[in-house]
């Protein structure tokens, strides 16, 4: 079963609606990597609210998606891991190290909005943001 991907402004939202085979997971990964470029997306949300099992393969695919889209310049956040899944993943020894997660879609959008604010990308070069604030050089307001 294909995972529908919705374009929402600068973000892509992939909603997993049922249990996925390994091939479905790989297909979702391929689609997201591709669409990040096609739509010039800044962020990706993978919503796993309806997922009943996150085994080692699914977990690795989610990590791959986050890292691969990261290489393409888009931030990924996984949302909707329900308590039973979290418990099972810990028991199994799985981790989503280096991958952003949020409670639900709303929190995921808030995370991406904060993470991809255009003023950060435009206003501050790494050189500027590393040094002490200088008057008049920052477009950002409060620090």
């Amino acid at each position: 079963m294909d995972v529908p991907v919705l374009k929402q402004g600068p973000f892509l939202i992939a909603t997993v609606q049922s249990a996925l085979t390994d091939a479905d997971l790989a297909q979702m990964r391929r689609l997201l990597i591709e669409q990040v470029g096609k739509f010039r997306s800044r962020g990706v949300i993978v919503d796993v609210t309806a997922v009943d099992v996150l085994d080692s393969y699914a977990c690795r695919t989610l990590r791959d998606i986050a890292h691969m889209t990261g290489f393409r310049g888009a931030a990924t956040v996984i949302v909707g891991i329900h308590p039973e899944l979290a418990f099972t993943m810990v028991q199994l020894g799985l981790s989503l190290e280096g991958v952003a997660t949020a409670l639900d879609l709303e929190e995921g959008l808030a995370y991406l909005n904060a993470r991809t604010r255009p003023t950060i990308a435009r206003g501050n070069s790494p050189r500027n943001s590393a040094g002490p604030p200088r008057n008049g050089t920052h477009t950002r307001g409060k620090r």
């Binding site: 996150l54 085994d55 418990f87 199994l92």
Partner: peptide, 29 residues
């Protein structure tokens, strides 16, 4: 899915059903 259904018929709670389904998934893979 079959493991989950059979587990439910035995009376396992949601957390156990997820543990069972995940274990089956790993072994089957």
């Amino acid at each position: 899915q079959r493991g989950r259904e059979l587990g439910r018929s035995v009376g396992f709670v949601a957390t156990d059903l997820t543990l069972i389904a995940t274990a089956i998934s790993e072994l089957a893979r």
